[in-house]
Design a protein around this nucleic acid. Structure first.
Lengths: 342, 342
DNA sequence: TTGTATGCGTTATCAG
DNA sequence: CTGATAACGCATACAA
């Protein structure tokens, strides 16, 4: 009569094992194990039995029953970009506080991988997901909208998409950088950007041109370079620009690019900031680890991460909530790379 | 008589929904959905029904049945350390190749968090875990040994512990760095290390002292500093050393420390490598992003990560395998920070 | 080929 | 307070 086997195939104890050993029903065993009411004697017996066999609850089975996993996912394309590390830390803090665990998925930035992840999300493996896509394709929007589990997007999203969303205003951020450089008397301000078909790339390009115009400067296409949002690409882009012309200031679309550009400038024998002032974006630890330390426009990555996590937890608690749209204001952090000491 | 409800509480379709709509049994539906044999007509009907209701299998339920999740975990203390990023990329490649997914857990480096994670592992949420603990306490060893799911450790582990393990020989690595610096004619070689109660910290300390002795140099405690394995700590440690004495070469226990030390050296007006040659450890992209680029002892992080992932997959396939112990040899990568151009 | 019935390990319901 | 039993959603042995 061992319809309920006491020892499963892999030999690990289950509630049945514990209940049998304690001489009670599985219901009683389960109650004790979950800290619900039971007579002192029952509690004692079950506790002892559980300890004896080293019982550990099976989270899969529990999840099947409770319809939740207490797992939150953060999907990020490039785990090597320190800006995501900062977001992750902020998210982790909020998630851990709620008694859940954070799992990080590296997508490598390709759309297929990201949509596969969203599908996985549909499989109910996590209770919700925070995603910060660099490109937003129709496939993304469709996958996110259709997702049966809550998704919060960090970054720009078409207004019509009814999804919780935390954004910043990078155009204003770019304007701050240009304003600062112009105030330092810089006249020939260059831009090293990421791909224009990405959301941040497009925003920075537009912001840069608008900011220059606002200061009565004309756009010199020789002072604009485009590459990837990476160190090596930033360095190569700066080298290309320097082979044509030398700016007196450089705004880079993120800190990785800025560090690459710094390298190119120093190799070229230029002094930073005396010859060329440099400003990056994202205000990551990478910029603080450079020499000279790099001025950078903070887009509040930690704040956005924490906010996204809170939005997600709220939505998990109440799925009926209307889609919310939060905004984090940028601010400029001035360091040695853009300000000549007097 | 809807004992098997066609529409679960949350409205998402299940096999029952699909089967009912297709007019077949749930067994047939399940078979078609899993690509097993069925008559063309059945296949057609089930496929159509599944598409119509947008059926997505519930991975939790599937896992409860199959006793596996196809998830692999990588536990790491400091996601901000680029050496772990490199490991992660290598692990991810192998894991994805096997059709599984990688999840990353940030432990913050504290023992409680790591053992909690191992407990979670016991809960069967992932099929296996790769962990690279910086400190190895008895609690770790116990938790790892007791783990019912496969664990592979990247890093040193007591020989007696029967756990798959990928290690490197950092003592030899340190010796390579010292050898290189000595060959450059450096006489006063300093060490900036991490905590001595960590596995890597202890190994580097021992290796450094042995290497110096091997070159007939005496140990000058003024030339040894200890901090955390972090940028800020490395910078502070270097400043402390410089306030006492100036070495003509500096070996740093990892690249984060090395970059911090570089900062301190440059601020002090010292030239690298002319005045002070600098060598780091781990050979991360951080060292390549510095100016000058930092020479570094590679401990084969990518190789170790990939190897660990393969070991884990093999063990999942065959749990009866004896514990294996793989070794990756270190090698020195010389860059501008330690070699004066002629 | 197809359907019925059972189990995966847990929690929850509902009598007793 | 306790125990039998039904879900949770899926896969599969076995019978038809």
């Amino acid at each position: 009569m061992d319809r309920k086997r006491l020892q499963p195939a892999d030999g690990r104890p289950t509630v049945h094992t514990v209940a049998a050993l304690a001489g009670v029903s599985i219901a009683s065993a389960s109650r004790v194990l979950n800290g619900l009411g039971a007579s002192p004697e029952t509690v004692r017996k079950v506790r002892a039995a559980a300890a004896e066999v080293g019982y550990v609850p099976n989270a899969i089975a529990r999840s099947l029953q409770s319809q939740r996993t207490d797992l939150i996912a953060f999907a990020v394309e490039d785990i090597g970009n320190p800006v995501y590390v900062e977001m992750m830390r902020a998210i982790e803090a909020v998630v851990a506080e709620s008694g859940r665990q954070l799992v990080v998925h590296a997508t490598g930035g390709n759309v297929a991988s990201e949509t596969a992840l969203l599908r996985r999300l549909a499989h109910r493996y996590v209770d919700g997901m925070i995603i910060s896509p660099i490109r937003v394709t129709d496939a993304h929007v469709a996958a996110i909208s259709d997702s049966p589990a809550p998704v919060v997007v960090i970054g720009q999203l078409p207004d019509a998409v009814p999804v919780d969303n935390v954004r910043t205003d990078s155009r204003t951020g770019v304007a701050m950088a240009v304003e600062h450089l112009a105030a330092q008397g810089r006249k020939r301000i260059g831009l090293i950007n990421g791909p224009l078909d990405t959301v941040p790339g497009a925003a920075r390009d537009a912001g840069f041109r608008a900011a220059l115009a606002a200061h009565g400067m004309t756009i010199d296409e020789d002072l604009i370079e485009i590459g990837e949002f990476q160190y090596a690409a930033g360095r190569a882009a700066a080298e290309r620009m320097l082979s044509r012309t030398v700016p007196d200031a450089l705004f880079c679309a993120n800190d990785l690019i800025a560090v690459g550009a710094l390298h190119a400038l120093l190799v070229a024998g230029l002094r930073v900031p005396q010859d060329v002032a440099l400003v990056g974006m994202d205000d990551t630890e990478l910029g603080r680890m450079s020499f000279p330390q790099i001025s950078s426009v903070s887009l509040g990555s930690a704040a956005r991460g924490g906010m996204a996590a809170r939005l997600l937890l709220e939505r998990i608690k109440d799925p009926a909530l209307p889609a919310r749209r939060e905004q984090v204001a940028p601010h400029l952090v001035i360091r040695a790379s853009s300000e000549v000491a007097r």
